[in-house]
Design a protein around this nucleic acid. Structure first.
Lengths: 233, 233
DNA sequence: GGGATGTTTCGGCCGCGGCCGAAGTGTTCC
DNA sequence: GGAACACTTCGGCCGCGGCCGAAACATCCC
């Protein structure tokens, strides 16, 4: 089982069904979700979702973990997330996105998870500040950590060495702000470290993140964010 | 006309048809191809291909240019190429690729185009050498040009400034060698410069590149390739 | 045990979309 | 002009695959 699809068309056509695309998008939040939650996200019945999940797992796009009577699904690899990012990029290039600025929406714009790293104005402000202080060089789409950056990240408590073959530093075009934020292994490490420090916290049933008071202080002080980063660009 | 599809599923499902995936893959060679050539690549009739091409153009994945009684199609943007790269990555992760090492295949492995830059052992050797000489920092998946690199590229005759919003330096996982080579604006610039210098030449009806004798000399001398870069890794 | 709840399997309906043959439009060449 | 060529449009066939209702497992709780 899980015998990986092996042609481009097979993979693309799996993503090409609206229900399955919704499932994968939901999982871009980075958390593992149950089949039921995914059914809700996909907007189809539980039976139908079950079929989709089986196909996606079979093809190696999703990984599944049994836990009691629940089955938790997550994206199988960061490569899959990369495909989704690239697709979002292209999809976003279309006609004007509608911008229904609800209150819940506003929280998403401020700070949210994107697969396994931080996005929204927070993510962008962090990326900008790292560049401004010469800790990171981003030539949009890609990037590298400077010597000074290595020292900085080390002091901040993230380990740049471990993590294997995954790209250390990538950028990801922000859905709401249309500017790049930090992805890749480094983006993921910054996120988990921020969670550990209690600077941000997940808001239940949502991809939004809450920035805690110590977080507000910490981000501003450690990363040197400009005072106006909370404002929309 | 060309009213850009705007959901992930729409884009993915366009790529998800085998014939269309073949068309897009063929265009990853970087050259614009006629409808007839694409029909041959897709393995379906001209009428069927025409329909596919219309859909792809309509969605903004392809750009088309009329020239006499031919219509030349090409990928509409580098974002599309990125999606295809990401998909190839995932598709390649499947069960062992068959490696039918024919003679034509061998030429492809040595040097070929990948959308608009060089791939194969040549592409990899260049990327490796640039890193070894401290002109480039690649933390795989992304990269940045060092100060020394900027001087080097300037002397080599490629302009890093112009080119707009496209990523300067990206890496692309090599299909045959499974190692990263140089993509992005820099990869494209190196390729066109190499063509101009007559170091490489396109082999007709193929994505393969021929490395000319001056090219052999030039690459070795200018980039400082190791003596054994012609051998498979 | 029995009754919720979460998930999958089965069976059948139905529509979308890929495919090709034939015919139509536009272009080039002699 | 007419013939060859490149490409598109039209019409109809056909099958794959998404969808749900019903029912079967599986697990947890009391």
């Amino acid at each position: 089982m899980t015998a990986s699809a092996n042609t481009i068309a097979e993979v693309a056509s799996l993503i090409g069904d609206p229900a399955r695309a919704n499932i994968l998008s939901a999982l871009m939040g980075g958390k593992a979700l149950t089949a039921g939650e995914l059914a809700w996200n996909a907007g189809v019945s539980a039976q139908t979702t079950s079929g989709h999940l089986a196909k996606l797992s079979e093809a190696g796009l999703l990984a599944v973990e049994k836990q009691g009577r629940h089955r938790y699904y997550r994206l199988a690899s960061s490569e899959i997330a990369q495909v989704m990012e690239a697709l979002m990029n292209v999809a976003a290039t279309g006609p004007k996105r509608h911008r229904p600025t609800g209150p819940k929406d506003e929280a998403m714009r401020l700070a949210r998870t994107c697969y396994d790293h931080m996005a929204g104005r927070l993510g962008i402000a962090i990326a900008d500040a790292l560049c401004a202080h010469g800790r990171l060089i981003l030539s949009d789409g890609s990037g590298a950590v400077t010597e000074e950056g290595q020292k900085f990240f080390c002091e901040f408590g993230v380990d740049l060495k471990t993590g294997g073959k995954r790209a250390l530093c990538r950028t990801c075009l922000d859905w709401s702000e249309r500017r790049p934020h930090l992805a890749g292994r480094l983006g993921a490490a910054l996120f988990t470290r921020s969670l550990d420090l209690g600077w941000v916290a997940r808001i239940p049933d949502s991809r939004s993140l809450r920035i805690t008071p110590p977080g507000r202080l910490g981000f501003a002080k450690t990363f040197g964010l400009p005072s106006d980063w909370l404002e929309p660009v």
